[in-house]
């Protein structure tokens, strides 16, 4: 179908992974520097061990499932979708998610336009909604190439876009964080909001993939 996304994708990006386990050995200079800084800052009452632990736990509690709930709600509730595109911070707040550090802007994929997000200057990412960015998002290869040859990069993620589709590459250079609102896959008319949320991957909310049609 002209103007549609074609997609072959079987390597399972964006799904949950088991949490890292404590390594009982220390291998690098920077690991030691990090331990030293933490101990010094605790000794000087700049931070407490409990505060550091709480920030780690808070990060662990934020996963792409939060964003998936937002996307599913936007698919089933046109008024919410409109509010999300108008003021995403406020809209995600309705679902109990708080953007503590940045302005969130949702960009919507359509039959005519596909959006993909990068931060060429560092690794800006909607952490408050999606958690920590994947390793590839922080990589030099992704940051350097997605603005220069975005269609080739998307192919490396298994995503083929028709030339009829305008590709919008959003470079997060400032205080704005972007959330891609993917297109709702075909064959999902009868799914509940929770079932829809389970379809939404992290990578589709960054825009490097599109969601597969449901058989």
């Amino acid at each position: 179908m002209s103007g549609d996304h074609h997609h072959h994708h079987d390597h399972g990006h964006g799904h949950a992974h088991s949490p890292p386990q404590p390594d009982d050995k220390v291998h690098s200079y920077y690991q030691i520097l990090s331990i030293a800084l933490k101990e010094l800052l605790i000794e000087k009452n700049v931070v407490t061990a409990a505060e550091v632990r709480r920030f780690i736990e808070a990060r662990d509690s934020i996963t792409p499932a939060n964003g998936a709930r937002v996307i599913a709600r936007a698919w089933v509730d046109p008024a919410f979708r409109a509010r999300l595109l108008e003021d995403a911070n406020k809209a995600v707040g309705e679902l109990g998610f708080e953007m503590t550090t940045a302005r969130l802007v949702a960009v919507e994929n359509t039959q005519e336009a596909h959006n993909v997000v990068v931060c060429t200057l560092c690794s800006c990412y909607p952490r408050d909604l999606l958690g920590l960015p994947p390793a590839w998002y922080k990589s030099r290869a992704y940051r350097a190439r997605i603005v220069r040859e975005p269609r080739a990069v998307l192919q490396e993620f298994g995503t083929e876009l028709s030339d009829d589709v305008a590709l919008h590459v959003h470079d997060s250079t400032a205080d704005i964080r972007f959330l891609v609102l993917p297109r709702r896959p075909a064959g999902t008319q009868h799914m509940s909001e929770a079932e829809l949320a389970a379809l939404v991957t992290r990578d589709s909310m960054i825009g490097v993939t599109v969601l597969d049609q449901v058989a």
């Binding site: 305008a166 590709l167 919008h168 470079d171």
Partner: peptide, 29 residues
């Protein structure tokens, strides 16, 4: 003041290999 600026990819990269519809958007003060 912060603005979103939209550039045609072909204007940013004269030898751009993609669709002429492709754009880059960046937030510029």
């Amino acid at each position: 003041d912060l603005y979103k600026i939209r550039f045609r990819a072909a204007d940013v990269w004269p030898d751009y290999q993609g669709s002429p519809k492709d754009v880059i958007e960046a937030d510029i003060y």
